[in-house]
Design a protein around this nucleic acid. Structure first.
Lengths: 83, 83
DNA sequence: AAATATTTGTACGTATGTATG
DNA sequence: GCATACATACGTACAAATATT
C-alpha cells in the first residue's frame, strides 16, 4: 500500500498538478523537512504517493531545478542543494 | 506527404533527438534563416517534418526558450526573439 | 565480478484544456 | 463555430547511470 502524503493534490484545480507538487516539495525544503543534502523521494515514489503520472512529477522536479533548489544526478536521484 | 527537412535527424546517435532538433533550429536562427520576429514552425509541423514525437519537439523548443532565443505564446506560436 | 534492482533520461502515444485567429 | 497552437496530464517502453546484493 502506497502511503498517502500529508497534503493531497487536487486534480481539478486552476493550479496545474505539477505546480501543486512543486509547491509541496518547495515547502518541505523551505521548512527544513527536506534539508540541503537530502535526497528527494524518487520519481516513482512521488508518482505513487500522489497518484500522478511520472511526466507530471518530472515537470515539478524540473521547476525546482530551474529554481536552483535541487540538483539531479542520473542513476542517483535528486538532492536538495539549498532552501 | 510531409516534406523532408534539409538536415535529417539521426534516431541512433549519441546526441538525443531533441538536442539535434534544437541544434538545427538554433543554427537556422543564428544564420538568419529564422531571423528575430519570425515564427518557428509549429510543434505539429516539426513533428511531422522530422518524424518525431511532439514531446521531443517540445523538449527542443524548451531548450531554445531556456536559452532566450525564442518565446512561446499559447494560441500563437513560438517566435524568434534574438540570435 | 556479476547479476539485479533502482533511478533518471529519452522517446513515443493519446487525450483534454485553454488561448488565439 | 471551427481550426490552429501551446499547456497539461495521462500512459508505455527502453536506455543509461548508479547502487545493491
Amino acid at each position: 500500500m502506497p502511503r498517502r502524503p500529508r497534503r493531497t493534490i487536487e486534480p481539478i484545480s486552476a493550479e496545474p498538478v505539477y505546480r501543486q507538487l512543486a509547491d509541496i516539495l518547495r515547502e518541505q525544503i523551505e521548512t527544513g523537512e527536506l534539508p540541503p543534502g537530502t535526497l528527494v523521494p524518487s520519481e516513482a515514489t512521488l508518482q505513487q504517493e500522489h497518484g500522478i503520472a511520472r511526466d507530471t512529477v518530472r515537470a515539478a522536479i524540473r521547476l525546482l531545478r530551474d529554481e536552483g533548489l535541487v540538483v539531479t544526478t542520473p542513476g542517483k536521484g535528486t538532492f536538495v542543494v539549498r532552501h
